[in-house]
Simulated scan of single mutants.
Amino acid sequence: MAGSRIGGSFLDVGCNAGFAVAAAHTLGFSATGIDIDAAAIAEAQKNFPDANFECAGVEEFARGETYDFIYCSEVIEHLPSLEGFLTEVRSLMHKDSLLLLTTPDLGHPSLRWPMRRTPIIEWDSIRPPEHLFYFNKQNLKKILNQHGFSRIKCALNTKPTIRALVQL
């Protein structure tokens, strides 16, 4: 995995109110945020008028450009289909791009008995129909590998969230 980077091009897929885009811009990135929620994009544009935001899904946004860093936090579990999404995210990357992907971790040790005192169905990330996919590190790595991502490193996390740093 590549080391830390400052500057370059940054894309936040599912940017919501734009805080990560604003932070990346502060760090010297040419930063853009996309989201399918028009109200979230309007809020982001209002709060961060110097940043770039677009109301679009990744499938509509992909235009042949690539980005040095792609941030996709708490998005993948909401998608009706992973196929087109992962294909388009991959198309936005070049050989040195980094993708930081986060999603709830159904396999996290804190969710196992005896640590977990309440049924897993009561976990706050079990939210059908809002969350359509549930991941653990193994099945997330498998689906990413199937879509051409070969270097996947999952960070240790004390909370039940997967933080995966991904490269082609």
Results as ranks from 00 to 15, higher is better:
N52K: 15
R116H: 10
E59G: 07
A164F: 09
A31C: 09
R5M: 14
Q45H: 06
R90S: 07
Y71W: 15
A22I: 02
L92Y: 11
S150P: 00
F29R: 03
L140I: 08
R5T: 08
G3S: 11
D68M: 03
F61Q: 01
L101W: 05
D68F: 09
K159I: 03
I121R: 11
F149I: 04
N47Y: 11
C15L: 14
S150F: 11
L111D: 00
E54I: 05
A38F: 10
L86I: 06
V75T: 12
L101S: 01
D124V: 08
L79D: 01
I76L: 09
P104Y: 07
F10V: 02
D96S: 12
I121V: 13
L99Y: 12
A164I: 02
P119V: 06
Y71N: 08
C55A: 14
E65M: 09
G57R: 04
I34R: 06
E54N: 03
T32L: 03
I152G: 10
N136W: 02
R127M: 08
N145M: 13
R151V: 13
D12N: 11
A51R: 11
R163E: 05
T66I: 06
G7V: 13
I70D: 00
F85W: 07
F19L: 10
A23R: 11
Y71S: 04
V75W: 10
P109V: 06
F133Q: 04
L132E: 09
Y67P: 01
R163C: 04
Q45L: 02
H131F: 10
A2K: 14
A17R: 12
A31S: 14
G18R: 06
G148V: 09
G64L: 08
G18Q: 06
E43R: 15
S4K: 10
V166G: 00
A44W: 14
A23S: 08
I70Y: 00
Y67C: 01
W123L: 02
D50A: 14
I41P: 09
F53C: 03
A20I: 00
K137Y: 07
G28R: 04
G3N: 07
V75R: 05
I36S: 10
R127V: 03
E122Y: 11
H108N: 02
